[in-house]
């Protein structure tokens, strides 16, 4: 793969030499990242993990340097981005939260910098601004199938943060998956109305357990509560089974690698070949098939899940990847049965 990339890079530079005979192929790339929280948040930690992996792979033979600025919002985020751009060391500025207001103020001042805005609360600005999004509804559907098969009480719960649309899509797919294999499944949904509040997460989890749920999709991260109540649960974004093997059956995972490569390619085309930036106006997300999301392994539960269930989930995963099965993105606010 590395060779192939190198080869491609060589070919494009050759092509360029044949044409305008100006820019030399770049050899270095700086990626500056603006994080709303920092490594303690899964959303940010996964990016930092994947950018290192991509840097090691050195696409187009690039030596990639990275830098992240944590916990900045609003004006401060704008100042940080501008500093990164002005330093000349960072050609890609990856704004990993809702920063399009700030990017809008900078994009024309630094036309050669490629800006990326990521996730909800952004607008597609086009030009040198790329709009990346993350959808995890496909592995969420698979988790739902597992839940539908494994529940004994026919009641499954979700403890979410806010009923925002990038949370809703995960919950709706999860329930769709559960219903697809077990139409009797009753849904329980609760939102803790906070991005981080362990006490409330515990309280709502316990409420769902009392309501009969024996499987809970934990978006709010209260895995210990499940463990204490001897209840199985699912995680999202990172492989929560590594942290809480006793309670977590599986997780829906995100990867930023395809997203990063998409952007790096676009920058390289611009820098090496003079191709104008063509930032997307409508958000772009990478599917499970493209490697943007995936289902984790089962860890401690590997032997406890019936083989036929595992086979079924694997088959569905393949079907999704081959587009034989299309999971719709459903943004409606989910409700309990």
């Amino acid at each position: 793969m590395k060779l192939a990339l190198l080869g491609a890079a060589a070919l494009t530079s050759l092509g360029l030499l044949g044409g305008t005979a100006l820019a030399e192929a770049p050899t270095e790339l700086g990626i500056g990242m603006i994080l709303a929280t920092g490594p303690e948040a899964d959303w940010d930690a996964t990016l930092l993990r994947d950018v290192e992996t991509v840097a090691k792979e050195a696409p187009h033979g690039l030596k990639i340097a990275t830098k992240h600025v944590d916990g900045v919002e609003g004006e401060k985020a704008k100042d940080a981005m501008e500093l990164l751009a002005k330093s000349g060391k960072y050609q890609v500025i990856w704004a990993h939260s809702s920063y399009s207001d700030q990017v809008k103020a900078l994009k024309d001042k630094y036309p050669d910098v490629l800006f990326v805005v990521v996730g909800s609360g952004n607008e597609g600005l086009g030009g040198n601004v790329y709009y990346d999004y993350k959808r995890v509804h496909e592995p969420s559907y698979l988790l739902g199938v597992l839940a539908g098969r494994l529940t004994k009480s026919d009641t499954v719960g979700v403890v979410g943060q806010f009923p925002s649309e990038d949370v809703n899509d995960q919950i709706n797919s999860f329930f769709a998956g559960a219903k697809s294999v077990n139409p009797d499944v009753k849904r329980k949904v609760a939102f803790i109305e906070s991005w981080y509040d362990p006490a409330k997460a515990e309280q709502f989890t316990n409420a769902q357990i009392s309501a009969g749920a024996d499987l809970i999709f934990q978006l709010a991260g209260s895995f210990e509560t499940c463990e204490k109540a001897n209840i199985k649960c699912f995680g999202n974004y990172v492989d929560q089974g590594e942290r809480a093997p006793a309670s977590v059956v599986a997780s829906s995972l995100i990867s930023w690698e395809p997203d990063l490569k998409w952007v790096i390619d676009a920058w390289y085309d611009h820098a090496a070949n003079g191709k104008p930036y063509e930032g997307n106006v409508k958000e772009r997300w990478f599917s499970q098939a493209e490697g943007g999301s995936s289902l984790s392994g089962y860890h401690a539960y590997d032997d406890k899940i019936p083989a036929e269930v595992k086979t079924e989930v694997k088959a569905l995963e393949d079907k999704i990847n081959s587009k034989e099965l299309v999971i719709p993105v459903d943004l409606a606010v989910p409700a309990s049965d």
Partner: peptide
């Protein structure tokens, strides 16, 4: 703080759009 959170999380003040987030429109 929670009142604002309500107003912005699916409440009446949230910006419209499929990728809406906890903020009002411009």
């Amino acid at each position: 703080v929670y009142l604002l959170s309500y107003l912005l999380a699916g409440g009446p003040w949230i910006e419209a759009g499929s990728t809406a987030y906890h903020q009002t429109p411009l």
